[in-house]
Amino acid sequence: MSSTTLPVARRPLALLFSIGRLVMPAIVLFWLAMAFFGHWVAPYDPAGIQDADLFEGISRKFWLGTDYFGRDMLSRILAGARYTVGISLMATSLAVTAGVLLGLAASAIGGFFDTAVSRFLDALISIPSKMFGLVLVAAFGASIPVLVLTLAVIYLPGCYRINRSVAVNVAALDFVAVARARGESTFYIMIREILPNMVGPVLADFGLRFIYVVLLLSSLSFLGLGVQPPEADWGSLVRENMPGLPYGAPAVIMPAIAIASLTIAVNLTIDSAFGRHAREGVR
Protein backbone atom coordinates (compact mmCIF):
# COMPACT_ATOMS: atom_id res chain seq x y z
CA MET A 1 0.00 0.00 0.00
CA SER A 2 2.52 2.64 1.15
CA SER A 3 5.38 1.10 -0.77
CA THR A 4 6.67 4.45 -2.07
CA THR A 5 8.31 5.46 1.18
CA LEU A 6 9.82 2.08 2.01
CA PRO A 7 13.58 2.30 2.65
CA VAL A 8 15.92 -0.12 0.94
CA ALA A 9 15.31 -3.48 2.57
CA ARG A 10 17.74 -3.92 5.45
CA ARG A 11 17.48 -7.60 6.05
CA PRO A 12 17.55 -10.40 3.46
CA LEU A 13 14.16 -11.65 4.65
CA ALA A 14 12.61 -8.22 4.17
CA LEU A 15 14.16 -8.05 0.71
CA LEU A 16 12.61 -11.42 -0.06
CA PHE A 17 9.21 -10.17 1.08
CA SER A 18 9.39 -7.03 -1.03
CA ILE A 19 10.40 -9.00 -4.13
CA GLY A 20 7.47 -11.32 -3.45
CA ARG A 21 5.20 -8.30 -3.43
CA LEU A 22 5.98 -7.70 -7.10
CA VAL A 23 6.41 -11.28 -8.31
CA MET A 24 3.21 -12.72 -6.83
CA PRO A 25 0.73 -10.48 -8.70
CA ALA A 26 2.77 -11.13 -11.86
CA ILE A 27 2.28 -14.89 -11.44
CA VAL A 28 -1.46 -14.39 -10.95
CA LEU A 29 -1.66 -12.25 -14.10
CA PHE A 30 0.41 -14.81 -16.02
CA TRP A 31 -1.99 -17.67 -15.25
CA LEU A 32 -5.00 -15.45 -15.96
CA ALA A 33 -3.51 -14.68 -19.39
CA MET A 34 -2.78 -18.38 -19.97
CA ALA A 35 -6.43 -19.19 -19.26
CA PHE A 36 -7.23 -17.20 -22.42
CA PHE A 37 -4.14 -17.65 -24.59
CA GLY A 38 -2.61 -20.91 -23.27
CA HIS A 39 -3.60 -22.85 -26.37
CA TRP A 40 -1.88 -20.35 -28.69
CA VAL A 41 1.27 -19.91 -26.62
CA ALA A 42 1.87 -23.65 -26.18
CA PRO A 43 5.03 -24.72 -28.07
CA TYR A 44 3.44 -28.00 -29.21
CA ASP A 45 -0.07 -29.28 -29.84
CA PRO A 46 -1.28 -30.19 -26.32
CA ALA A 47 -3.03 -33.32 -27.62
CA GLY A 48 -0.38 -34.25 -30.18
CA ILE A 49 1.90 -37.21 -29.47
CA GLN A 50 5.48 -36.09 -29.94
CA ASP A 51 8.49 -37.99 -31.14
CA ALA A 52 9.59 -38.75 -27.60
CA ASP A 53 9.67 -41.41 -24.93
CA LEU A 54 6.97 -41.72 -22.29
CA PHE A 55 7.62 -39.80 -19.05
CA GLU A 56 10.72 -38.13 -20.43
CA GLY A 57 12.66 -35.90 -18.07
CA ILE A 58 13.24 -32.19 -18.43
CA SER A 59 15.10 -31.37 -21.64
CA ARG A 60 15.71 -28.40 -23.91
CA LYS A 61 13.18 -29.80 -26.35
CA PHE A 62 10.50 -30.56 -23.74
CA TRP A 63 10.93 -28.06 -20.92
CA LEU A 64 8.75 -29.95 -18.47
CA GLY A 65 9.23 -33.44 -19.88
CA THR A 66 6.58 -35.58 -21.56
CA ASP A 67 3.50 -37.39 -20.27
CA TYR A 68 2.28 -40.99 -20.40
CA PHE A 69 1.55 -40.71 -24.14
CA GLY A 70 4.76 -38.85 -24.93
CA ARG A 71 2.94 -35.51 -25.19
CA ASP A 72 4.65 -32.25 -24.27
CA MET A 73 3.90 -31.45 -20.61
CA LEU A 74 4.47 -27.69 -20.84
CA SER A 75 1.89 -27.42 -23.62
CA ARG A 76 -0.60 -29.53 -21.68
CA ILE A 77 -0.19 -27.42 -18.55
CA LEU A 78 -0.58 -24.16 -20.49
CA ALA A 79 -3.69 -25.55 -22.20
CA GLY A 80 -5.01 -26.89 -18.88
CA ALA A 81 -4.96 -23.39 -17.39
CA ARG A 82 -8.15 -22.74 -19.38
CA TYR A 83 -10.01 -25.36 -17.33
CA THR A 84 -8.46 -24.84 -13.90
CA VAL A 85 -8.51 -21.04 -13.98
CA GLY A 86 -11.61 -20.71 -16.16
CA ILE A 87 -13.91 -23.06 -14.24
CA SER A 88 -12.66 -21.70 -10.90
CA LEU A 89 -13.18 -18.09 -11.97
CA MET A 90 -16.71 -18.78 -13.18
CA ALA A 91 -17.62 -20.72 -10.04
CA THR A 92 -16.09 -18.12 -7.73
CA SER A 93 -17.84 -15.27 -9.56
CA LEU A 94 -21.15 -17.07 -9.24
CA ALA A 95 -20.66 -17.85 -5.55
CA VAL A 96 -19.45 -14.34 -4.69
CA THR A 97 -22.16 -12.57 -6.69
CA ALA A 98 -24.87 -14.65 -5.08
CA GLY A 99 -23.23 -14.41 -1.65
CA VAL A 100 -22.86 -10.63 -1.85
CA LEU A 101 -26.41 -10.07 -3.10
CA LEU A 102 -27.90 -12.35 -0.44
CA GLY A 103 -25.69 -10.80 2.24
CA LEU A 104 -26.71 -7.30 1.17
CA ALA A 105 -30.36 -8.28 1.07
CA ALA A 106 -30.14 -9.90 4.51
CA SER A 107 -28.53 -6.78 5.99
CA ALA A 108 -30.88 -4.33 4.27
CA ILE A 109 -34.11 -6.27 4.84
CA GLY A 110 -33.24 -7.87 8.16
CA GLY A 111 -35.90 -9.54 10.28
CA PHE A 112 -37.28 -12.93 9.32
CA PHE A 113 -35.61 -12.98 5.88
CA ASP A 114 -32.19 -12.48 7.46
CA THR A 115 -32.79 -15.18 10.08
CA ALA A 116 -34.14 -17.73 7.64
CA VAL A 117 -31.38 -17.31 5.04
CA SER A 118 -28.66 -17.23 7.70
CA ARG A 119 -29.88 -20.36 9.46
CA PHE A 120 -30.22 -22.30 6.23
CA LEU A 121 -26.83 -21.36 4.79
CA ASP A 122 -25.03 -21.76 8.13
CA ALA A 123 -26.35 -25.30 8.37
CA LEU A 124 -24.96 -25.99 4.89
CA ILE A 125 -21.49 -24.96 6.11
CA SER A 126 -21.51 -28.02 8.37
CA ILE A 127 -21.05 -30.26 5.33
CA PRO A 128 -17.30 -30.52 4.65
CA SER A 129 -16.58 -29.13 1.18
CA LYS A 130 -14.98 -32.25 -0.31
CA MET A 131 -17.84 -34.39 0.98
CA PHE A 132 -20.38 -31.96 -0.49
CA GLY A 133 -18.51 -32.13 -3.79
CA LEU A 134 -18.53 -35.93 -3.85
CA VAL A 135 -22.27 -36.13 -3.09
CA LEU A 136 -23.12 -33.54 -5.78
CA VAL A 137 -20.93 -35.26 -8.39
CA ALA A 138 -22.41 -38.66 -7.47
CA ALA A 139 -25.88 -37.26 -8.07
CA PHE A 140 -25.37 -34.96 -11.08
CA GLY A 141 -22.21 -36.19 -12.82
CA ALA A 142 -19.19 -34.14 -13.75
CA SER A 143 -19.85 -32.13 -16.92
CA ILE A 144 -18.25 -28.69 -16.88
CA PRO A 145 -21.48 -26.66 -16.33
CA VAL A 146 -22.40 -29.00 -13.47
CA LEU A 147 -18.92 -28.61 -11.98
CA VAL A 148 -19.18 -24.81 -12.08
CA LEU A 149 -22.57 -24.90 -10.35
CA THR A 150 -21.39 -27.52 -7.84
CA LEU A 151 -18.37 -25.45 -6.82
CA ALA A 152 -20.47 -22.28 -6.63
CA VAL A 153 -23.10 -23.95 -4.42
CA ILE A 154 -20.43 -25.37 -2.08
CA TYR A 155 -18.76 -22.00 -1.45
CA LEU A 156 -21.88 -19.84 -1.43
CA PRO A 157 -22.65 -20.31 2.30
CA GLY A 158 -19.18 -19.28 3.48
CA CYS A 159 -19.21 -16.33 1.12
CA TYR A 160 -22.64 -15.26 2.35
CA ARG A 161 -21.57 -15.44 5.97
CA ILE A 162 -18.56 -13.14 5.46
CA ASN A 163 -20.37 -10.63 3.28
CA ARG A 164 -23.41 -10.50 5.51
CA SER A 165 -21.29 -9.74 8.57
CA VAL A 166 -19.51 -6.93 6.70
CA ALA A 167 -22.76 -5.59 5.24
CA VAL A 168 -24.54 -5.58 8.59
CA ASN A 169 -21.82 -3.34 10.02
CA VAL A 170 -22.14 -0.92 7.11
CA ALA A 171 -25.94 -0.99 7.27
CA ALA A 172 -25.82 0.24 10.86
CA LEU A 173 -24.06 3.48 9.85
CA ASP A 174 -25.77 6.86 9.76
CA PHE A 175 -25.75 7.47 6.03
CA VAL A 176 -27.76 4.32 5.50
CA ALA A 177 -30.32 5.54 8.02
CA VAL A 178 -30.41 8.85 6.10
CA ALA A 179 -31.03 6.99 2.85
CA ARG A 180 -33.85 5.05 4.48
CA ALA A 181 -35.34 8.31 5.77
CA ARG A 182 -35.14 9.72 2.23
CA GLY A 183 -37.39 6.84 1.27
CA GLU A 184 -34.95 5.04 -1.02
CA SER A 185 -35.86 1.50 -2.08
CA THR A 186 -34.22 -1.52 -0.43
CA PHE A 187 -32.46 -2.37 -3.70
CA TYR A 188 -31.04 1.16 -3.98
CA ILE A 189 -29.76 0.96 -0.40
CA MET A 190 -28.15 -2.42 -1.06
CA ILE A 191 -26.39 -1.44 -4.27
CA ARG A 192 -25.69 2.29 -3.94
CA GLU A 193 -25.25 2.78 -0.20
CA ILE A 194 -23.88 -0.43 1.32
CA LEU A 195 -22.04 -2.19 -1.52
CA PRO A 196 -19.60 0.67 -2.39
CA ASN A 197 -18.45 0.67 1.24
CA MET A 198 -17.50 -3.00 1.33
CA VAL A 199 -15.55 -3.35 -1.91
CA GLY A 200 -12.26 -4.20 -0.13
CA PRO A 201 -13.55 -7.12 1.95
CA VAL A 202 -15.54 -8.42 -1.02
CA LEU A 203 -12.41 -8.49 -3.20
CA ALA A 204 -10.30 -10.12 -0.47
CA ASP A 205 -13.00 -12.74 0.00
CA PHE A 206 -13.16 -13.29 -3.76
CA GLY A 207 -9.44 -14.10 -3.83
CA LEU A 208 -9.61 -16.53 -0.90
CA ARG A 209 -12.72 -18.19 -2.25
CA PHE A 210 -10.93 -18.57 -5.59
CA ILE A 211 -8.09 -20.45 -3.86
CA TYR A 212 -10.51 -22.86 -2.18
CA VAL A 213 -12.33 -23.43 -5.46
CA VAL A 214 -9.07 -24.14 -7.35
CA LEU A 215 -8.01 -26.62 -4.65
CA LEU A 216 -11.39 -28.38 -4.54
CA LEU A 217 -11.68 -28.56 -8.34
CA SER A 218 -8.15 -29.96 -8.57
CA SER A 219 -8.92 -32.52 -5.86
CA LEU A 220 -12.09 -33.66 -7.62
CA SER A 221 -10.26 -33.93 -10.94
CA PHE A 222 -7.44 -35.76 -9.22
CA LEU A 223 -9.97 -38.30 -7.92
CA GLY A 224 -11.27 -38.69 -11.48
CA LEU A 225 -14.56 -37.00 -10.53
CA GLY A 226 -13.89 -33.53 -11.95
CA VAL A 227 -12.99 -32.49 -15.50
CA GLN A 228 -13.34 -35.59 -17.68
CA PRO A 229 -11.00 -36.75 -20.48
CA PRO A 230 -10.18 -35.79 -23.20
CA GLU A 231 -10.34 -32.37 -21.55
CA ALA A 232 -7.78 -32.03 -18.78
CA ASP A 233 -7.29 -29.47 -16.03
CA TRP A 234 -4.24 -29.54 -13.78
CA GLY A 235 -5.77 -32.00 -11.31
CA SER A 236 -6.56 -34.42 -14.18
CA LEU A 237 -3.00 -34.02 -15.47
CA VAL A 238 -1.64 -35.18 -12.12
CA ARG A 239 -4.07 -38.09 -12.07
CA GLU A 240 -3.38 -39.37 -15.58
CA ASN A 241 0.38 -39.25 -15.02
CA MET A 242 0.39 -40.99 -11.63
CA PRO A 243 1.91 -44.16 -13.19
CA GLY A 244 5.03 -42.09 -13.81
CA LEU A 245 5.54 -41.41 -10.12
CA PRO A 246 7.81 -44.44 -9.47
CA TYR A 247 10.12 -43.17 -12.25
CA GLY A 248 10.21 -39.69 -10.77
CA ALA A 249 8.65 -38.23 -13.92
CA PRO A 250 8.22 -34.43 -13.90
CA ALA A 251 4.83 -35.01 -15.55
CA VAL A 252 3.35 -35.84 -12.13
CA ILE A 253 4.80 -33.05 -10.10
CA MET A 254 4.72 -30.15 -12.60
CA PRO A 255 0.92 -29.73 -12.86
CA ALA A 256 0.73 -29.91 -9.06
CA ILE A 257 3.37 -27.18 -8.84
CA ALA A 258 1.34 -25.11 -11.30
CA ILE A 259 -1.64 -25.34 -8.93
CA ALA A 260 0.52 -24.43 -5.94
CA SER A 261 2.06 -21.47 -7.79
CA LEU A 262 -1.40 -20.11 -8.57
CA THR A 263 -2.88 -20.55 -5.09
CA ILE A 264 0.20 -19.29 -3.24
CA ALA A 265 0.50 -16.29 -5.55
CA VAL A 266 -3.16 -15.36 -5.06
CA ASN A 267 -2.81 -15.86 -1.31
CA LEU A 268 0.23 -13.61 -0.98
CA THR A 269 -1.22 -11.00 -3.36
CA ILE A 270 -4.26 -10.70 -1.10
CA ASP A 271 -1.94 -10.46 1.90
CA SER A 272 0.00 -7.53 0.50
CA ALA A 273 -3.06 -5.79 -0.94
CA PHE A 274 -5.46 -6.10 1.99
CA GLY A 275 -3.26 -6.93 4.97
CA ARG A 276 -2.85 -10.25 6.69
CA HIS A 277 -5.89 -9.89 8.93
CA ALA A 278 -8.18 -9.96 5.87
CA ARG A 279 -7.88 -13.74 5.92
CA GLU A 280 -8.88 -14.23 9.54
CA GLY A 281 -12.24 -15.78 10.15
CA VAL A 282 -12.71 -16.76 6.51
CA ARG A 283 -13.30 -20.42 6.01
Binding site: S219, F222, G235, G248, A260, I264
Partner: peptide, 19 residues
Amino acid sequence: VSVPEFLVASAAVLVFAVQ
Protein backbone atom coordinates in the same frame (compact mmCIF):
# COMPACT_ATOMS: atom_id res chain seq x y z
CA VAL B 1 -2.84 -24.48 3.40
CA SER B 2 -2.50 -23.22 -0.20
CA VAL B 3 -1.05 -26.44 -1.57
CA PRO B 4 -3.19 -29.36 -2.78
CA GLU B 5 -2.84 -32.55 -0.70
CA PHE B 6 -1.80 -34.61 -3.69
CA LEU B 7 1.21 -32.36 -4.28
CA VAL B 8 2.38 -33.07 -0.72
CA ALA B 9 1.69 -36.78 -1.19
CA SER B 10 3.42 -37.11 -4.54
CA ALA B 11 6.39 -35.03 -3.39
CA ALA B 12 6.68 -37.31 -0.33
CA VAL B 13 6.59 -40.41 -2.56
CA LEU B 14 9.22 -38.90 -4.87
CA VAL B 15 11.59 -38.11 -2.04
CA PHE B 16 11.14 -41.01 0.38
CA ALA B 17 10.09 -43.88 -1.86
CA VAL B 18 11.68 -43.11 -5.24
CA GLN B 19 14.87 -41.24 -4.34
